[in-house]
């Protein structure tokens, strides 16, 4: 079997099917009281899902890029520390990490902060004691997703940075660019273009994995679907609406990312 050389040029029948199904569901939402009530409730979770995804992903990108750079550092300690972090975080299921961060890590961190803050600098000064409940479950969930995804993104960034040809870096050295200039003007722009498709994939995956925060009871789309179905006894309809909301986000995002990549490719080839 010879692979088709240009699968990207196929007419997107899949998109037609998805759109038709989506339109049917939107029609149901409009026509059926059960669907529209479910949508009205679940829509309140869109904001939380978006916030969890965006902040979690942005944080994971920054942390992941830092880890990738640490992993390629001149210093053995930094390289090994990055490796340790990545291997451990990648090896723990996100749902386990989520419960661990929420009920072990954050309470421990708060206890540590309090014990440092209550050191007797001034016996008269009453130190405000930080309580675990002051850190909402939403932010603990975002932190956990950020820690988990930073390990995956670090590997993507590392691959991207390593894929830049050594000849490019040598040429930049010959031109007298210093370390930061080489990274900023030569390595990063090329690596960025290479990592964009896998980064986009993980962004879409993060939209879906944001649903894991529901195990803590954070009111995202999934948690609202869970409690809505517990109250209206309509699992099929309620989860249809949840799936519709997620698909609208993920497919919309995929299409936008593909267009963006095509634009980037166009710029390079020009």
């Amino acid at each position: 079997m010879t692979p088709n050389p240009k699968p990207d040029k196929d007419f997107p029948w899949w998109l037609v099917i998805v759109t038709v199904t989506g339109l049917w569901l939107f029609y149901e939402v409009w026509a059926s009281a059960v669907y529209s009530a479910a949508l009205a409730t679940l829509a309140k979770g869109i904001g939380i899902t978006v916030v969890v995804t965006l902040i979690g992903y942005a944080g994971a990108c920054i942390l992941g890029l830092g880890l990738a750079m640490a992993g390629l550092s001149r210093f053995l300690v930094l390289r090994q520390a990055a490796r340790l972090y990545i291997e451990v975080m990648r090896g723990i299921p996100i749902i386990v990490l989520l419960l661990y961060v929420a009920f072990v890590l954050v309470p421990a961190a708060i206890a540590a902060i309090n014990s440092v803050a209550s050191l007797p600098y001034d016996v008269e000064a009453k130190v405000e004691v930080l309580r675990t409940r002051d850190v909402p479950l939403l932010w603990r969930a975002v932190l956990a997703l950020m820690l988990a995804y930073s390990a995956f993104l670090a590997e993507i960034f590392r691959a991207g940075l390593q894929a830049v040809e050594t000849g490019q870096i040598e040429a930049a050295k010959a031109l007298g660019l210093n370390g930061w200039q080489r990274f900023r003007h030569i390595v990063f722009p090329q690596a960025f273009r290479m990592v964009l498709p896998p980064l986009g994939n993980d962004f879409v995956a993060m939209v879906k994995d944001s649903s894991l925060v529901s195990v803590l009871g954070v009111s995202d789309i999934t948690q609202l679907a869970k409690v809505t179905a517990a109250g209206n006894f309509r699992y099929f309809e309620t989860y249809n609406v949840a799936a519709l909301l997620y698909l609208t986000m993920t497919i919309g995002l995929s299409l936008a990312l593909r267009r963006f990549e095509a634009g980037m490719r166009g710029r390079v080839e020009r």
Binding site: A37, A40, T41, K44, R133, G217, L224, K226, V227, T228, A230, G231, N232
Partner: peptide
């Protein structure tokens, strides 16, 4: 007082049709 619940146990606590 801060009271915590899940809203998943009708009719003790749940979301009604309006959410």
């Amino acid at each position: 007082i801060v009271v915590v619940t899940e809203n998943a146990y009708p009719p003790l606590q749940f979301l009604d049709a309006s959410g």
